[in-house]
Design a protein around this nucleic acid. Structure first.
Lengths: 209, 209
DNA sequence: GATTGGCGTAGTATTACTACTACACCTGCC
DNA sequence: GGCAGGTGTAGTAGTAATACTACGCCAATC
């Protein structure tokens, strides 16, 4: 009989997860908690076969809870659920010791598949996450992403993040706009970001602007 | 016997909603749809006692669906569910004709209470929403800059701030790119901002993204 | 009823930007 | 010394976006 712990601040989601899991594991004993504190407490005090935890919860995050769980119950498999796309959090979560990262809009069958896989001692890795893991080795440098930029690239990052247009930056640096556009492309590639909005958000979060 | 229509792109959420509702209304007949198109089709073709719809769904939004529902079935009560806090959408949604706005982290008992209230012909208004309605007239000139935007403008703001390109937004909203570009210009003018980076920063600071 | 303003929508001409490609120079490594 | 990779720079062809302009519809106001 499996003991399954579900952590999510949304009662609706907990209920949906519970029902989906009970269909696949009718004899499972399912417990629900609504925040990371309760999640950690339950893991410390009792033995579980698997934890399914939301990534974003009020107070301490699911990622923090994951780190604590790995301290107290290193062998306990943890599946992290999130509304965020994989490219934002999957690697970070897997590095922290999760057995899998699931997006909340996934089909119930896939969720059940993931639980089966993890309960059998394996990790649940989607092909797109596998690809990111393969490329992440090269990005596995210490320090913030912007530390990987050349001086010129860093200069251009800050101007782009502040909202300067390519042509404005080209004028002020006495370059052609295609040069600045190339810098932008290199910056995005090195920092594994996609859009100017990503650059702005990153720069705000890292106090670059 | 109540016929209840649930619209949410997340199967987990639909399942949770279904179970919670079936506990309070054991004889209810519940139908699930995963997007706004199906929601509108179902409302046009069949008779329902109440609709519970997620605000954010792929393709057309729940707000758009609400507007269509009000055209085809003006008397049909619609409860809108969202992860977004009230201050972003509640007034907008209620003005569009919803019978209530519920945050997804609400307790199941409150959800059931809201359904009871709405099925009896009333609106479900939380005290904090009532306060916002009472002050909304005066807040037309005060309030956050984004409150000055129309529904469509607000929708485009969030997409731009998140880094979507004009052409991506145009595709997903089935508009021409010049239309979206015009919205962007109007948004910037109404909010007295100049660049997309300004939109991103504003949206981060105001928890819009 | 007439007028005004807001909103949703979009075309034209023009400009900005990008993917792709490339070159020269410098540094570090073998 | 030769090679590889990083950096600074930028052109071409094509696409994306914008300033300017405009229209229809609706609601509010006089």
């Amino acid at each position: 009989m499996r003991r399954i712990l579900i952590a999510d601040d949304h009662a609706i989601v907990r209920r949906g997860l519970k029902e989906i899991i009970l269909e696949a594991f009718p004899s499972a004993e399912i417990t629900e908690v609504a925040d990371a504190e309760d999640l950690i407490n339950k893991v410390v005090k009792e033995v579980w076969d698997i934890v399914l935890s939301d990534l974003s919860m009020p107070g301490r995050s699911g990622l923090e809870a994951l780190q604590q769980i790995k301290i107290h119950a290193p062998k306990l498999p943890v599946l992290i659920l999130s509304v965020y796309p994989e490219d934002q959090y999957a690697i970070r979560v897997l590095k922290a010791g999760a057995s899998g990262y699931l997006n909340k809009d996934m089909a119930p069958e896939e969720l059940v598949n993931a639980i089966h896989k993890v309960l059998s001692g394996r990790k649940y890795i989607t092909p797109s996450i596998a690809e990111k893991l393969a490329t992440n080795i090269d990005l596995n440098t210490q320090g913030p992403a912007h530390a990987r930029l050349s001086d010129r690239e860093f200069e251009v990052l800050k101007l782009l993040a502040a909202g300067k247009s390519i042509s404005d930056i080209a004028s002020s640096l006495f370059l052609s706009s295609t040069t600045v556009s190339t810098y932008r492309a290199r910056i995005l590639a090195k920092m594994n970001l996609k859009t100017n909005a990503d650059l702005t958000q990153y720069s705000l979060e890292n106090n670059l602007i």
